[in-house]
Write a protein that binds this DNA or RNA. Structure first.
Lengths: 343, 343
DNA sequence: ATTAGCACTCGGAAATGGTGAGTGCTAATA
DNA sequence: TATTAGCACTCACCATTTCCGAGTGCTAAT
């Protein structure tokens, strides 16, 4: 048992991982020895493999099977061995084409981005939309619907729209609606939605509005318009994971699909990804998510200026084509950032 | 071989179907003979079963297994044998609680409805949102974003909102925006969105606007705001179908999930359901959808007044608890209709 | 340090045999 | 005439066995 990886053992480890990524079968010593590049006998390879197993990089499903990389091996692989391939021109074109957001609803565009990520990687695409509360308030507008009901529309600077139907109790005069929105637009100009929330609460307590029912109402309605839950995740290409041979087990799949459906846990994981800028990789148990055993998550943040807006990425088996997927995720995030920058 | 079903053979068929619905196992003659209600020896039951098989109501997976109902049997069952159970009070409460749409975005509310259908039925819930084009125009509004970009907001009478970012080329004056929306609101008042489409095209050709660039622009922008694709389907509880024993086969499931993801074919099927009012049932091959073998679809239309707005329902295996699911779907559709009526 | 050789291990596929649920047919019965 | 008991037969399913070969670890030779 050695405690330091020699150049040769690194090569062998890499060969094993890369073989396993394509075949999804335990890799034997013969296979590695045949792998062009290094000319060693199976026996030698076996010795090294035994060492690697002792160090926790490899595991054997059973005595007479080959070896399988552990999470630790993948971690080492992406950290030290992998030279990230530059993105293929064809892929770049595809991303460019499908991420075109011009004139589209942001949600739709991000959903399409997620779909694109899934189809390019052949795994599952995932996009966390920007928190609405991080946006800057631009405009609020009230539109009279039938009876005593209003449609309130809240627009933020990046073009995202929140709308809500409000029951007013009694009928409002159109002129009052205009007054209300003027008042609010002036009051809230330039604030982030989070600040808007506070501002409204503060204002509601202030004396001057106590005697102005119209303003009071305006504040109340605008408060109702603010979204209470505001994280949206787009998960597309779920069916792709069914193609992976490691998920033939039905109960495994059930777990995974349930996790996708609930989204809650996934959300907190993505939140964690938001903290570090750039590309982020969770391998297997690193995600601390019971449903994620055997799965990896590659994400990248997208941003305008210095503000991290959201994350996007790909979920697949730990045995994932990291070399191919990482540049895709990276490039996509940068592209989305640039497209949102223009807004 | 008889060509008419006697009372007794109907009873036996019913017993077989209902047993199969719970167990998902081929039903043998002993089981039926033991079934309380009819006191016949297994041998007699066997004779009847042989007849039923000849008539195409039953099939045997292999010689020494029991019999399994065919699509034809299910069809006969729902048409003639099934007395639809009234909906349980608890279910009714649950539906009432979760379908509460007050003040929510219509899309969100329908998604929740779909989720509710899935959790109550333990199958997959499906809701087709109202076509936007069937709605009546209420209001259009332009909001200036940074630079030369506009946010156009189109509100229809039921509160649904379409918004779109428009690249204007050069900067617009706020006063012009107001003029534009006034012009359009007046022009399009009371038309359905479909009529709006035509109206705009007609108006664009008319002479008077040739000399008024502002109006021309207004028309162009409003046209851009109209949705081009406008059918939204909410499919929730997909993971539920993984629980069904008949879908342990991985390739089957892949097909089904792909179908859910693509939605295209499903959409045309739902369109067909829209044509007939009320509850609609497609059993197995009746849907003429390759992915639907072994699956059934129960839908009901929801409407305001005489207008069919959309459909909602449940997808599950042909071996579905029709007696329980049908009233759920029916009741939900009626409730949704009533809730939208109020709008 | 590397490698050839060899005995050994163990999962997976194929072959085998027994079991039982279920059937169809025939002849006896009410 | 309709029903039923009886019986031989079928065939999926399960458990057991056997066999094969890929892969291993160890040892001795290079």
């Amino acid at each position: 048992m050695r405690d330091k990886l020699t150049e040769r053992s690194k090569q062998i480890l890499e060969a094993i991982i890369e073989d396993y990524i394509v075949t999804a079968e335990p890799v034997g010593s013969r296979t590695v020895s045949r792998s062009h590049g290094l000319s060693l006998s199976p026996a030698t390879v076996r010795n090294v493999m035994a060492d690697l197993e002792d160090m926790g990089f490899l595991a054997s499903p059973h005595t007479s099977a080959g070896r399988v990389p552990t999470d630790k091996a993948y971690r080492f692989y992406v950290d030290s061995l992998l030279e990230v391939r530059t993105i293929a021109q064809g892929e770049q074109d595809e991303i460019l084409k499908r991420c075109n957001m011009a004139g589209r609803d942001l949600g739709e565009a991000l959903k399409e981005t997620s779909r694109m990520l899934s189809s390019l990687s052949h795994y599952t695409g995932i996009v966390l939309a920007p928190r609405f509360t991080a946006n800057v308030f631009r405009h609020i507008e009230f539109i009279k619907l039938g009876g005593s009901r209003l449609l309130a529309i809240l627009v933020s600077r990046n073009g995202t729209v929140q709308n809500k139907i409000i029951e007013t109790g009694d009928e409002m005069r159109p002129a009052d609606l205009v007054k209300m929105s003027n008042y609010l637009n002036h009051l809230l100009k330039g604030l982030t939605i989070a600040q808007v929330k506070e501002k409204i609460i503060g204002e509601m307590k202030s004396d001057k509005i106590k005697y102005d029912t119209l303003m009071a109402k305006a504040l109340e309605y605008s408060q109702q318009t603010l979204p209470e839950s505001d994280s949206e995740v787009f998960i597309e290409g779920q069916a792709n994971i069914l193609e992976q041979p490691e998920f033939t087990d039905v109960t495994r799949m059930k777990d995974i699909f349930r996790a996708f459906e609930e989204k809650g846990q996934l959300l907190s994981l993505l939140d964690r990804c938001m903290e570090a800028q750039g590309v982020n990789i969770y391998i297997g148990a690193e995600a601390h998510l019971s449903q994620m055993v055997g799965m990896s998550l590659i994400t990248a943040t997208y941003m305008t200026g210095r503000n991290t807006l959201g994350v996007l990425g790909v979920i697949g088996p730990t045995r994932m084509g990291y070399a191919k997927v990482i540049p895709i995720v990276d490039y996509t995030a940068k592209l989305v950032s640039r497209l949102l920058e223009l807004e």
